[in-house]
């Protein structure tokens, strides 16, 4: 009988141990995820600023395919709009999904801006996607994204 029990206990211990490793692995993964933004957190950041459905189109993101220095990646975001009193871009929101935090910047425009375009330089900790959302004056939202491969990350960690 006692011989019968031993392997069971052994198996149980092994299971408990494996369970512990599993938990540690999950916690590790959660911690790793918390250290960086994700496509979901980037979307949440954008959704908090622009409520509604994001449609593809109108937005163009220009950025290098490969950025050797993640400390300053030149990015241009432009939105197709005539920028008149009747039809203009109210705002452009920019996020990145691989930095410690997803937010990058928000730019508000008026018809007097004449053109909905802004050039900026972004810090990128690693290879990631830049996501931009344009908020039109009629409330509609347009989005585009672009991946930038980063050779040396720039978040000073």
């Amino acid at each position: 009988m006692s011989n019968h029990h031993r392997p069971t206990i052994g198996r149980r211990r092994a299971l408990v141990r494996a369970g512990g490793f599993g938990l540690a692995a999950i916690l590790g993964a959660v911690a790793a995820r918390e250290a960086s933004a994700t496509p979901e957190s980037a979307r949440d950041w954008l959704s908090a600023l622009a409520k509604g459905e994001f449609k593809e189109g109108k937005v163009t993101i220009r950025a290098p395919e490969i950025a050797e220095n993640g400390n300053a990646v030149p990015v241009t975001v432009s939105v197709d709009s005539e920028m008149t009193d009747g039809s203009y871009v109210k705002a452009i929101y920019v996020a990145a999904d691989g930095n410690p935090n997803p937010g990058v910047a928000a730019f508000e425009f008026t018809p007097a801006s004449g053109k909905a375009e802004v050039q900026l330089r972004i810090r990128m900790a690693q290879t990631q996607k830049v996501v931009a959302v344009a908020h039109m004056n009629d409330g509609s939202l347009f989005t585009a994204s672009r991946e930038v491969k980063v050779t040396i990350g720039g978040c000073g960690g």
Binding site: N71, A72, V73, A96, N99, P100, N101, G103, V104, A105, A106, F107, E108, V118, L120, R121, I122, R123, M124, G154
Partner: peptide
């Protein structure tokens, strides 16, 4: 009007 986050260089 630009609102900037720490991800700006």
């Amino acid at each position: 009007a630009a609102t900037l986050e720490p991800a700006i260089s």
